[in-house]
Amino acid sequence: MQTLPVNGYDMAYLEIGAGPPLVCVHGTLGDFRTWSAVYGPLSKKHRVIPVSLRRFFPEHWDGVGGDYLMAQHVADMIAFLERLDAGPIDLMGHSRGGHIAFRIAEQRSELLRRLVLAEPGGELDRSLDPAADLGPSPRAARIVSSAEMIKRGDIDGGLAIFCDMIDGDGAWARLPALSKQQLRDNAYTLIGQVGENRQPYTRSGAESIKTPTLFIGGADTPGALPVVLRALAAHVPGAQTALIAGARHWMFEQAPQEFCEIVLAFLGEA
């Protein structure tokens, strides 16, 4: 593990392999270990650089403080890419990390060569979904419930609510012990996420993306995430879309070989 100081915080990351840099940004409750199932295949052709965002493992945060914000994580990642000084890089983000990667592409496209968004998280505004509610979504309400349980000390209960919401009923129970422990290591970040002030995606934002973009997801992912993926992919210029049969939101764990084949083919395009 290495660290790089960005915006007054020592961001932890790994470097695996050699070649063009591929920076990987984890989602909610994740960290640089999120991508462990695909380190090997991706690092055969790339210098794979998975990061841990501010307040995530290896830090064990208590959920107290005001710097767990979407804008802060976006700013941290931009500073991280600048500090790498590796030229335009390939950037891959999953879920909440996909949201962060999307915002970087909006704000600083010159830092990027290609963009991979694995079921990016977030809400759509009415320019992308005319039926979008103005208030909190049912998914946001479930996150609040999960965070409240964690705050009361029921870590596994809160994580079960979150995982089952994302990947279907019984998702938490199906997880192997190692995956459950990684989520527990980051459980208190869910408390921060409740007040992170994440803004919805807009059609003008999607249309502004200049970076060649791949949207990848699980064909069996339930809920709102596939809706977000389709809406963004329809408006990001020239975007490609790939869905992995039989996989859900953590598709790179459930179908790592197919995931890597799709991503590497996209990154290898001239």
Rank of each mutant, 00 (worst) to 15 (best):
Trp250Thr: 11
Ser208Pro: 04
Ala140Val: 15
Ser52Glu: 08
Asp164Lys: 04
Ser179Lys: 12
Gln199Leu: 15
Leu115Ser: 03
Ala12Met: 07
Asp220Asn: 12
Ile49Lys: 11
His235Glu: 10
Ala160His: 02
Leu214Ala: 06
Gly268Asn: 14
Ala147Cys: 14
Ala265Pro: 05
Arg198Gln: 13
Asp167Pro: 02
Asp90Cys: 07
Pro212Glu: 05
Gln72Ala: 14
Ile143Pro: 00
Val48Glu: 11
Gly170Val: 10
Pro200Asn: 05
Ile191Glu: 01
Pro138Gln: 02
Leu117Val: 00
Gly192Cys: 10
Gly30Lys: 11
Ala231Lys: 00
Phe56Tyr: 14
Ala18Val: 04
Glu82Met: 00
Leu4His: 05
Pro88Tyr: 01
Phe252Thr: 01
Met11Asn: 02
Trp250Lys: 05
Glu123Trp: 10
Gly17Trp: 14
Ala118Glu: 14
Arg203Pro: 12
Gln181Gly: 01
His73Met: 13
Arg83Tyr: 02
Ser208Cys: 07
Ala132Gly: 02
Gly63Glu: 06
Ile100Gln: 07
Gly170His: 05
Glu106Gln: 13
Asp129Met: 11
Gln240Lys: 11
Arg96Lys: 07
His235Met: 12
Gly17His: 13
Asp154Tyr: 01
Ala187Pro: 09
Leu178Val: 14
Asp129Tyr: 01
Leu128Ala: 02
Val48Asp: 15
Asn7Glu: 13
Asp220Leu: 09
Lys151Met: 15
Gly40Glu: 15
Ile216His: 03
Leu112Glu: 03
Phe80Arg: 04
Leu175Asn: 05
Ser43Val: 09
Ala231Glu: 01
Gln2Asp: 13
Glu261Phe: 01
Ala79Asp: 15
Asp164Met: 02
Gln182Pro: 02
Asp220Pro: 10
Leu214Tyr: 09
Gly66Ala: 15
Ala101Leu: 04
Ala177Glu: 15
Phe32Ser: 06
Gly98Trp: 10
Ala105Gly: 10
His99Ile: 00
Gly195Glu: 15
Ser36Pro: 03
Asp76Gly: 02
Arg174Gln: 12
Asp220Phe: 02
Gly97Trp: 10
Ile209Gln: 02
Pro200Leu: 10
Ala86Glu: 15
Pro212Trp: 09
Pro237Gln: 02
Asp133Tyr: 03
Leu183Arg: 08
Met1Thr: 12
Trp172Val: 07
Ala37Asn: 13
Ser109Thr: 04
Arg47Trp: 12
Pro130Arg: 05
Val194Gln: 02
Gly122Pro: 02
Leu111Lys: 07
